[in-house]
Amino acid sequence: MNWQNIKAVFYKDWRELLKSRQAMVTLIMVPVILMIILPAGIIISTMVKSDYLTDKNAQFMQYFPQNLLPPGLDELQKLLYAMLVIFNAPLFLLIPIMAASIIAANSFAGEKERKTLEGLLYTPVTDKELVLGKILVALAPAILISWLCFLVYGIMVNAMTYEVFHRLFFPTDMWIVLVLLLVPGMSFLSLSIVVAVSQRASGTWEAQQISALLVLPVIAFLISQSTGIFYVSLLGMIIIGLVILLIDAAIFFWIVKSLDRERMLTKLV
């Protein structure tokens, strides 16, 4: 295994990704909408005293499991906490999933679709180096984008609600687990599904759509979080994170083991 080769593949895919307007627009717009525009809207609408909004908010809070909220918060603080800390957590998880699957689809299925893969197979890059370079090019930006979002979100949320909380209430322990365990874990899971699908999918679009199925459990998580049907405790979250990382490790070894240049090539024709 030669790191220079892995870096060369990474560099190539990275240059290509930066030139893909469609991928770049989605990679920038989705985090901006989910982690800036949406929460800013929530904060502003919650803090503005309007009858309609307070009614809606009261309804939301009526069904919200109160035991999830830390003690000693007033009504407005409870509402903001519920929205920004609990409700938005699964939304945040959509970012690494989305980013990893878009980049991986571009780099695996996209290369096949654009008929550029065969050229790479004629270079001295080994199968393992090729796949590792491609995994890294999807994984690193997905994690970095998510972490950047987390940073911006944290600053924004604390700054906009400082007059309500009078302290920095974000991030909570759960968010730290999300960021450190679930972001890398879900990014890898998402890209490995794309890699598996890319073996059979005919193009970027198809690979991306199938891998979007991964969003479903996250949406289920979102609904269960917000309705309190099923709430994952901090310990539960750590366990889920570790299990996902274990699954990732297993998938990684399976991908590397099942690599075959000849099959990659004959699948092209």
Binding site: K12, E16, K19, S20, R114, T116, E118, Y122
Partner: peptide, 9 residues
């Protein structure tokens, strides 16, 4: 070979 180059680069 008749493999494609990277058209976006």
């Amino acid at each position: 070979t008749d493999t494609n180059l990277y058209e976006r680069l």
